[in-house]
Design a protein around this nucleic acid. Structure first.
Lengths: 162, 162
DNA sequence: TGATAATGATTACAGATCAGAACGATTGTC
DNA sequence: GACAATCGTTCTGATCTGTAATCATTATCA
């Protein structure tokens, strides 16, 4: 009889999920040195890309309920990385901005991102890296994923120290 | 002056994390129709690939503490998908196996996986798909990722219903 | 104008989830 | 034959989570 393997071969979808979680984990470890979690880094990036948005909008993009966004932003504000500015025309909303200190940290974050990218793609030549980048972008586009936001930002917890 | 974008361009690492979370989310939605969560599906696959292992080993591969594995396996056993068999030579350990019902469900799971793969890679031609598969496998190998296990299995929670 | 509904930020709260310690049963060591 | 180690399990305190209520402000519209 022939032994048919029930797990034939991991496909693209499985490898994406596996590698994605792996990459996210490594990145989380790395930026822990900057005292940042992935969702925090995500917010900083979002504020750099589009400053002055309301908390509700940002919470929506991050995929978390507004109630949980409050203490989340509180800590970043307490550390002087972001700023809540009252809107004169509509005094209900806060417009969130990056402080200078926040921008400085974002620069460090960019460096960390480069090092992370380099280490993760160690197995690939430069042109393979570019080819992979193109293929992934095509999928991301077609799947309707917006740049700068990803679903992994929903949770705060990922902070394991093995 | 030149406006330098603080988020230059998402790299491979970011796209992997983003697409990985996206793919995992879609898959979770899909197998919810079979009343399965990703970690449950993962265990079924692991048992098919290597039957008879102990709970501690499996918990380790899944990335969860043994204490949490117990109720996790309990439900699958209650549903008649897996079986705990006592080891005669060492009566401390349980050897976990798939039941027939479990194998049947695994077949449905494989079908779901195929459909998932197809929908996710809709943007790619067949040869692009293969090229991508090759590149991802190279990275996974070099990063020391074992087939059939991924870090996203650590948590049970992901069951949001938007 | 003025009452009512809608919106943003926040707080309150009740329930789920988590990891590690503690526990009995069994086995290896010497 | 005592003692340490291992496996499965239960217990427990702390953390995290989403929903609903609250307060201030703004829009709607008769």
């Amino acid at each position: 009889m022939t032994a048919s393997p029930p797990t034939p071969q991991p496909g693209v979808a499985f490898l994406l999920a596996q590698l994605g979680a792996h990459a996210a984990g490594l990145f989380a470890e790395r930026i822990a040195a900057l005292d940042l979690t992935p969702p925090q880094a995500g917010l900083l990036r979002m504020l750099a890309a589009a400053p002055g948005r309301s908390q509700r909008e940002l919470a929506g993009d991050l995929g978390m309920p507004p109630s949980r966004f409050v203490p989340f932003a509180d800590e970043l504000e307490k550390r002087g990385l972001i700023e809540r500015r009252r809107n004169a025309s509509d005094r209900r909303v806060y417009a969130l901005h990056l402080t200078e200190k926040g921008e400085a940290l974002l620069a460090e974050l960019a460096q960390a991102g480069m090092a992370h990218e380099h280490l993760l793609c160690e197995a690939l030549t430069a042109e393979e890296h570019d080819r992979l980048l193109g293929l992934l972008r095509r999928i991301a586009d077609q799947q309707g994923l917006r740049p700068d936001v990803h679903p992994g930002y929903r949770t705060l917890r990922p902070r394991p120290k093995p």
